[in-house]
Design a protein around this nucleic acid. Structure first.
Lengths: 245, 245
DNA sequence: AAAATGTATTGACATAGATCAAAAATTTTA
DNA sequence: TAAAATTTTTGATCTATGTCAATACATTTT
């Protein structure tokens, strides 16, 4: 951190307008304690397509995604790929690691992150015990969502998988327009390619494309230019996602 | 806990000969501190086929499996099932939960467990800070293994899935005979049915059975009475599991 | 704006694994 | 130990999704 600026200046610049503030683990820290948090972390910018966590690299840091999105994936020797998750605003990354990271993380569009060395997290937990619970929550909810993904990959049909994906993406920070649960159109901006979606859902791009086609024909969605999808019946998609006949 | 027995008596009975002692989170606690651990937990016995954690029930407790095995699974409304994991000696259960448990856990054969209410774990962590790291490790390794399972379900062939399963089961506590990595026969006792294996691997029982058949024909395994499998070439199975051609 | 490049869709066909149906093996019960 | 019940294996067939190939559509470059 350069001199000539006080810690308070950095807090102002980094946290005051951070849209991840209320979503991330930072919400376990009171405003007046932010300087301690900032002192233990650094901010990094990652251009589109660049990876900032490498599978197999020594796991020294945790990350909080503060803008943009990212994809997390694993590769097999012959190039088969499984995307294990998409990260968005406020997501905490790096828990799935022992000595080394278990996945690669790559920015989907430009992204910024706050980096916390493991040792810093330990110090912060000691000082702010609430942070421990917050991290435990983070790990638990990650475990829950991975278990749901196992059901998706092991037992759901292509339609159920894509419906699950769309319903999952229909969270506040992915929405372009439209309200919550209400039964009116809800437009999503999907920053990932069809290949990414396929590798997330354990399908091929052709099947993803055809399944989008079915949903269009059945009047469940409209698609504008591949990356903008409008859900016309969230309820019905949600039923399909859960295998409700 | 009944009177007339000191805490030390219970420790002796419960922990001294507990084969999970060195594997479970209990290994973060020194022998002289075991009474505190025992005071915060209770021991339960679960007969074969009975469930002790129910998906959707309020999540009040964590469990450590101290004998036997268990299967953890999720159901869809129409009965499709995904087994999210098999638990064995020393495994810590209950992390995948928010307000309610995200899975059902059922004993595979008779099992015993130690139950720790969430509040007890909080108290124990406060008293034994090493326990926090131990639990974090537990969560991390669970996340890593779930991510590996995503690759299995999303991208691996039937042969790769079954080979992965066999290699995974070839851990010390599942072995009946045979040594570690060495290239000599290694016999496993599989307490789960073919249906369980199928629901774990995202396949049907017929495909599991046929794939066992392939491995037999190729001289990779021998099978005795469906629940005893001998791995003749761990190395080759491991290559298949990882998609190495 | 046109050309070039990359990405997504659509179509024809192939196949791994599912489904349905016996038969065989194993385990349980009597 | 024999009979019954259950589980596993094997066989025949089907189908959802994959593969390969050709357009079509977007986006970027010139």
């Amino acid at each position: 951190m350069e001199t000539g600026r006080t810690l308070m200046d950095v807090v102002k610049e980094r946290c005051e307008h951070c849209s991840g503030r209320s979503l991330s683990i930072c919400n376990a820290i009171d405003d007046e304690d932010l300087p301690a948090l900032v002192a233990e972390s650094s901010r990094i910018s990652v251009p589109s397509g660049r990876s900032f966590i490498e599978e197999g690299a020594p796991a020294h840091d945790f990350y909080v995604l503060t803008s943009g999105r990212a994809k997390l994936f694993n590769l097999m020797p012959d190039g088969r790929r499984q995307i294990v998750g998409f990260a968005e605003l406020g997501d905490f990354l790096g828990l799935a690691a022992s000595e080394t990271y278990a996945f690669t993380a790559e920015a989907l569009g430009d992204a910024t992150l706050c980096r916390f060395p493991h040792s810093s997290i330990d110090r912060l937990i000691e000082r702010f015990p609430r942070l421990r619970c917050r991290l435990q929550e983070e790990a638990s909810s990650e475990l829950v969502s991975l278990q749901a993904r196992l059901m998706l990959l092991g037992r759901k049909t292509a339609k159920e998988r894509l419906a699950s994906f769309l319903v999952e993406q229909a969270r506040p920070c992915c929405r372009v327009g439209g309200e919550a649960g209400a039964e009116r159109p809800l437009t999503l901006s999907l920053p990932m390619s069809r290949t990414d979606i396929a590798d997330y859902l354990g399908l091929t791009i052709e099947t993803v494309s055809r399944t989008f086609g079915h949903f269009k024909k059945e009047g469940l969605i409209t698609v504008k230019g591949a990356s903008s999808v409008t859900l016309l019946s969230f309820k019905e998609l949600s039923n399909i996602a859960n295998g409700v006949r």
